[in-house]
Design a protein around this nucleic acid. Structure first.
Length: 478
RNA sequence: CGGGGUGUAGCGCAGCUGGUAGCGCGCUUGGUUCGGGACCAAGAGGCCCGGAGUUCAAAUCUCCGCACUCCGACCA
């Protein structure tokens, strides 16, 4: 069955999870290291996954009225510095351009680490009236943050993402936008990436530099470490004031708009790898798989096999499914292993025996289950099998999440539970940063979020014993 | 940015008591195979990470860089 080890080039995840992860990134041909430290090349197969993610998300953004724009990659230092908290938050990891050709620049220019400042600068020029609000912008681009240590997808000095930036007439509207986009991310994770998430608010310590509130979707990987999936921020009018973005309101008075931003990155590919992958390689949810179905002809030299496989490819493709057939003269075993390593959700084997029976054999990547499918029922069976893989992945990930949430009533207990099981440890919390620092210091965990779905586990903070204000999730995060 | 590990063919590695390079896989060509990583034969492919030393002679010894990687602190 699927648990058997069939792909030899990949380190077992039980042996060394980090090595397993790196092996998959390289062997599944997702990514290659570039010549500057911390920069990566997204290879065609990896980029195709990102393109599928982009297409689905972009369509969702557009449904709610967002439009795409492109902002410059360089930010003048003076512009970046207008909002103090943002500068302080990002200063350690900004890369600078100081030369233009052979000339020293008058003012150095920052490679964008995020684009709030440029959106604000732009809006300060073009916004005049409440009639022009809301402005619902998004951009797909890469940003640069000079990280100290780097890993493919999870942390690199350049990464690709989308950053949504919006301004609104009222605080309520902006808050609604922040929530709407967080839910958009949550749906994307659960329905498209097949990764269940915990939705919640970040603590003040963990929130985005300059934000009034940061909301997050947190997910759990197979090694029971946490990963922040995507975030959505509410800024109030803080940036508007700092960048002098104003409009004339309905009352004919000058007002500051309320702002949001929200982002998701190629890190989501890392999340998919660590949420679904196994010892045979990558496992991709059908909705984002560049190849959803691979057709492997068996005994292709026998008369009629290649023709029939070609016919099968055409029929499956005609269903709107991303399909490929492998007519190379590699052995059957090689092909099976190859497409397992690349995470193709469904493999169809077609050989002389199948042709005789007017059928093919479908093998699911998630659990290895084999089904005989009549060639007359492809239109019903193949989409159903892809749906089953999508659902199977979600169910397994949900089980992993649910089995790894533990309640604790003291730091000591939290530490023990984390050491023994990993996952999310939930406790009551007083709301003080000192207690977050204590949990980090003594149990090695950071706060992941204050979940929207609160539970009352007790009356007092697990860290200090004072009256509790929230139930909070802790974890070891990527 | 601190602590470890590693840089030799596309990939994985050997060679490290100094004498200018080898194995497996992959690649190319031809043939036989084909229901879970096939086999035979013939090929191609290397400033041994970079720079300075020591030496008649350096992949090998010594310093200094750089990169990758793992573990921490920081962050999407």
């Amino acid at each position: 069955m699927a648990k058997e080890k069939k792909v030899e080039q990949i380190t077992d995840m039980e042996t060394d999870f980090a090595q397993w992860y790196t092996d998959i990134c390289r062997k599944a041909e997702l990514v290659e290291y570039a010549s500057v430290k911390g920069f990566t090349i997204l290879r065609p197969y990896g980029y195709a996954i990102w393109e599928n993610m982009q297409n689905i998300m972009d369509a969702e953004f557009k449904k709610t009225g967002h439009v795409n724009v492109a902002m410059p990659v360089l930010i003048p230092e003076s512009l970046l510095k207008k909002e103090g908290e943002l500068v302080n938050g990002f200063a350690p990891e900004v890369a600078w351009v100081t030369m233009g050709g052979s000339e020293q620049l008058e003012e150095r220019l920052a490679f964008r680490p995020t684009s709030e400042t440029m959106f604000c600068d732009h809006w300060s020029r073009v916004l005049h009236s409440y009639r022009e609000l809301p402005m619902l912008y998004n951009q797909w681009c890469s940003v640069i943050r000079w990280e100290k240590t780097t890993r493919p997808f999870l942390r690199s000095r350049e990464f690709w993402w989308q950053e949504g930036h919006t301004i609104h007439e009222t605080a309520e509207e902006a808050q609604h936008e922040t929530e709407q986009q967080l839910n958009c991310y949550a749906d994307f994770f659960e329905k498209v990436l097949a990764i269940p998430v915990v939705r919640g608010r970040k603590t003040d310590k963990e929130k985005f530099a300059g934000a009034e509130a940061t909301y997050t979707v947190e997910c759990l990987m197979k090694d029971h470490k946490a990963l922040q999936g995507a975030t959505s921020h509410y800024f109030g009018d803080k940036f508007s004031r700092a960048y002098d973005v104003t409009f004339t309101g309905r009352d004919n008075k000058l007002q500051y708009p309320f702002q949001t931003s929200w982002g998701s990155t190629t890190r989501m590919i890392g999340a998919v790898i660590m949420a679904h992958g196994d010892n045979n390689g990558l496992v991709l949810p059908p909705k984002i798989a560049p190849i959803q179905v691979v057709i492997v002809p068996v005994a292709a030299h026998k008369p009629g096999v290649t023709e029939k496989a070609q016919e099968l490819l055409e029929k499956v493709s005609a269903l709107g499914i991303r399909a490929r057939a492998d007519f190379s003269d590699n052995s059957l075993g090689w092909k099976c292993a190859q497409y397992e390593m690349k995470g193709v959700p469904l493999r169809l084997e077609l050989g002389p025996r199948d042709i005789e029976n007017n059928s093919c054999v479908a093998v699911r990547r998630d659990n290895g289950a084999k089904t005989t499918v009549s060639l007359d029922e492809l239109a019903e069976q193949i989409p159903a099998l892809l749906d089953a893989v999508q659902q199977g992945l979600y169910d397994a990930a949900l089980e992993n999440l649910e089995k790894h949430i533990f309640a604790a009533s003291s730091v000591e207990e939290a530490k023990q539970l984390q050491a023994e099981h990993g996952g999310f440890i939930k406790t009551m919390w007083c709301g003080e940063e000192a207690c977050e620092l204590k949990m980090k210091e003594e149990a090695g965990m950071s706060s992941r979020c204050i979940p929207f779905r609160q539970e009352k586990l007790g009356e007092t903070c697990a860290c200090c014993g004072k009256p509790a204000r929230h139930m909070i999730y802790w974890g070891i995060a990527y």
